[in-house]
């Protein structure tokens, strides 16, 4: 069947199997930054934005996103031109094996797009669908706070001067 979506800003017409999940479709397009860690919707490594909302692409039937705007980790930035959230994860030392990182960044983006200055509990809630086996999460919290500041600065809204929180 045919699927019409915008992926990272680009309109695409794709031929998909009716039962295909979005994560597999994206990975087959070469967008392998979207990882698959469990296919049960628990680890969050496959998180992508569907019309701005974070979704586990391992459980989402591709057929259900007809007409949607999909953003994957590749849509945020690349090594030469990283997104401020990606920079924040590097600066915070929030990356170890890196397998959960794209999903974590996508969840962070969904959160900060809607709430530029989230409370600690909101950060925790937003990241509760992303597992990390390496870091113990502390530096991921730091990364979210650094990203918050970077984005606030970039948007000219420098009102947040809070120091990075910890969980």
């Amino acid at each position: 069947m045919k699927l019409h979506v915008r992926i990272n800003g680009e309109a695409r017409e794709l031929e998909i199997a009716p039962g295909a999940v979005l994560g597999d479709v994206l990975r087959q397009l070469g967008l392998t930054g979207t990882k698959m860690g469990c296919r049960e919707g628990h680890c969050g490594s496959c998180m992508v934005l569907v019309n701005g909302k974070p979704m586990n692409s391992c459980l989402l039937l591709a057929a259900k996103v007809e007409g949607a705007e999909i953003t994957t980790i590749e849509g945020l930035g690349d090594v030469r031109n990283p997104h401020p959230i990606q920079e924040a994860f590097v600066e915070a030392g929030a990356v170890q094996c890196g397998f959960c990182t794209p999903g974590m960044i996508i969840s962070t983006k969904a959160l900060l797009d809607n709430e530029p200055h989230p409370s600690l509990e909101r950060v925790r809630e937003a990241l509760s669908g992303n597992l990390c086996r390496c870091t113990g999460y502390a530096k991921i919290f730091d990364a979210v706070r650094i990203a918050e500041h970077k984005l606030a600065k970039a948007s000219g809204n420098g009102k947040s001067t809070r120091r990075p929180h910890r969980p």
Binding site: D78, P82, Q86, V95
Partner: peptide
């Protein structure tokens, strides 16, 4: 900064 961090955060790894 760890040398593989930039590739990892952009999904290039």
């Amino acid at each position: 900064t760890r040398i593989d961090a930039e590739e990892k955060v952009t999904g290039a790894t």
